[in-house]
């Protein structure tokens, strides 16, 4: 077993896939010096500058050319640096990458991974902090991954690289340093398979990405009060594990969905609606969504803190359902 950080897990996944498959390569700004957070540290030394490629500050060209490179037989891993900058390449992702397979009648796919580090981190304010996962879930043709642990980052990035379709791969910036013991040999993960973080009988809390930590902390607090909470980490948002969520709510009769993103139109709404449709008669309390208010992310820390969904808010939501 090796102690591995979330960041290191991503690096390891990419390196292992690059060793296995010579058509895998990565491209993005500053990759030759390890990338903006150090996710690519040392990689150019092993794989050379053609496969760990620098790029001009040209997001549309980075993503657009990756679509072409994917159509022509390689597997590009595109680094967007911050999810926010991927917005400079939305046409390339949404109109081009996501559509090609269907529009061209299945003649070929776009095996492309778009890494988009997301979320609030060190007072980065409105243009460097967003959680936009729901946008991508809305687009047919895209797979959306938001790992919460080093192990999932390792396994799911491998799966993403092996996927024949475009994958929006959202690592959370606040998780880079978290550690986990991982095996020497970790196979690719499975899309659409949730992880039960903790078993429970009284309520189900569903979340993903960094919010899973807060859900687990809330469950811990509630356990001390004698409330047994089941915590589910979705891991991938498209496809998502409806079966696991529905089975859990069948058992508990209560659902809280916790997300860092703006709640309005967020992925939590999809989970809440799905559970309401399936379990309307057996719910013991109305489904509750937790998320940020519909405001840009402010810089000042006390303001930023106000829009975070912390363990207290999650625990309070569960208590209100009991």
């Amino acid at each position: 077993m090796v102690t591995t950080t979330y960041m290191e897990a991503g690096r390891r996944a990419l390196a292992e896939e690059m060793r296995r498959d010579p058509t895998v390569w990565a491209v993005g700004e500053d990759l030759g010096r390890g990338g903006v957070f150090g996710q690519y540290a040392g990689m150019v030394e092993e794989f050379g500058p053609l496969r760990i490629s620098d790029a001009p500050i040209s997001e549309a060209a980075i993503l657009g050319s990756a679509v072409g490179a994917a159509l022509a037989g390689t597997r590009p891993v595109v680094e967007m640096r911050f999810a926010d900058f991927a917005l400079c390449a939305v046409d390339e992702l949404v109109n081009q990458a996501a559509k090609a397979r269907y529009m061209f009648g299945g003649q070929g796919g776009v095996p492309l991974v778009v890494r988009e580090p997301m979320g609030m981190w060190r007072s980065s304010a409105a243009q460097h902090s967003q959680s936009l996962e729901a946008w991508y879930v809305h687009i047919p043709g895209l797979t959306v991954v938001a790992p919460a642990t080093p192990g999932d980052n390792l396994r799911l990035l491998k799966a993403a690289i092996r996927s024949d379709d475009p994958v929006v791969y959202m690592e959370h910036k606040d998780l880079w340093g978290i550690e986990e013991e991982l095996g020497e040999d970790e196979p690719p993960g499975e899309f659409g398979s949730a992880r039960t973080v903790r078993d429970g009988n009284d309520a189900t809390v569903v979340s993903w990405s960094a919010m899973v930590r807060n859900a687990a902390a809330a469950a811990e607090m509630l356990a001390e009060e004698g409330v047994s909470v089941e915590v589910i980490d979705l891991r991938t948002l498209w496809p998502w594990d409806r079966g696991a969520v529905l089975a859990s709510v069948q058992k508990t009769g209560r659902l809280v969905v916790a997300q860092e993103a703006v709640s309005v139109g967020g992925f939590g709404a999809e989970v809440a609606a799905t559970v309401s449709e399936a379990h309307f008669g057996s719910l013991k309390a109305p489904v509750k969504r937790l998320g940020a208010p519909r405001i840009p992310i402010p810089y000042a820390k006390p303001l930023e803190d106000m829009l975070r969904v912390g363990p207290d808010a999650i625990a309070a939501a569960v208590r209100a359902q009991l």
């Binding site: 309005v264 998320g291 519909r294 840009p296 000042a300």
Partner: peptide
């Protein structure tokens, strides 16, 4: 200040925690 200056219409707190 958190809720000020988002936009003129709608309640920014909608559906939030």
């Amino acid at each position: 200040a958190l809720y000020a200056d988002v936009q003129d219409v709608g309640d920014p707190r909608e559906a939030a925690f």
